[in-house]
Simulated scan of single mutants.
Amino acid sequence: MTDHGAAELVARTRREIAASTTANRFVSMLETGEMPQDRLVWLAGEEYRIVSSDRRSFALLAARFPDSPSGGLFLGLAQGEGQALTLLGDFAAALGQSEKNLMAYEPKPLAQAYPAYLAQRAAFGTAGEVALAMLANLEEWGAYCARTAQALRTRYGFSDRAVGFFEFFAESPPGFEEQALDVIASGLASGDDPVEAARAARLLHAYETAFWDVLADGLP
């Protein structure tokens, strides 16, 4: 499949994901100021484990697929997760939480389905399917992060530094889409199954949705 074919696969997968997307109750409640402060601690605690896991997953992918274009893409993503982990510390500090608190936080099982699935794909999947999953879901994730940052500033009085973690993810890294498309096209040219790749992207989206749902679970 050519680069054009890879772009078509991305567009089709994005449409499939969009058709299954539901309202994000957690972010909506943040925007109205109805989200209790303790749920923000949940957010920090869950993200601490997610980002730590994702950094290792991308490092594993870079080791499994070191050649261009995959190696550069995954190494860059691993480095980005490292930056995000530092920024997360500023958000946690604004909540009065230390790294020790984040380590002691008891994660909610379904909130961790996303990094667990990414780790599974990092160990057993193809470079192309992971690139497709990340690219197809990135715009929605970025939009949620942008809304979260804005709500935390306007509704909860957080500083720009405290919301830096969410601002970091609000926009995709420079050149990411082009790199990811190259990886997808390379994988398809090598025999990757586009049906399996799209399935991985849809599953990753479902697990990301579960993460947000858990954060709002049980609230009126």
Rank of each mutant, 00 (worst) to 15 (best):
L203R: 14
L88E: 03
Q112L: 15
L73M: 11
A143F: 10
M35T: 15
F169H: 15
P194F: 05
V27K: 04
F176R: 13
C145W: 12
R121I: 14
W141I: 14
G71E: 07
L132M: 13
A123E: 13
Q179P: 01
E140V: 11
E177H: 10
L88G: 00
S98K: 07
Q179A: 10
L110M: 12
A197S: 14
P194I: 12
A197Y: 03
L88T: 00
G5S: 07
W42S: 07
R153F: 07
T209W: 08
E99I: 12
G72H: 00
D67Y: 05
K100R: 15
V51R: 07
F26T: 08
G71C: 03
S190L: 15
A131H: 08
W141D: 14
R64F: 02
L132G: 08
S53E: 13
P220R: 04
E106T: 04
A149D: 01
T126C: 14
T13A: 13
M1N: 08
V130R: 08
R155G: 12
E139K: 13
A210T: 05
G96V: 09
T32P: 03
L188P: 04
Q179M: 08
L181M: 11
L60F: 02
Q97H: 09
V130S: 10
Q97A: 15
R15F: 06
E129V: 11
G45R: 09
A78I: 01
L40G: 10
T209V: 12
R55T: 04
R64L: 10
L152M: 05
E177T: 14
E99H: 15
N101I: 02
G80W: 02
S28G: 15
G128T: 10
T148G: 02
A185G: 09
S68Y: 10
A116L: 09
T22H: 12
F176D: 08
Y105Q: 04
R121V: 15
V214Y: 04
K100I: 09
Y105T: 05
R55D: 00
A23P: 13
M1W: 07
A113R: 10
E208M: 08
G89K: 09
E47D: 10
S172K: 15
E31P: 03
T13M: 12
E196F: 02
F211A: 06
N101W: 00
F169D: 01
S98C: 07
P66H: 08
A62Q: 06
A23N: 10
E196K: 09
P107Y: 00
A84R: 11
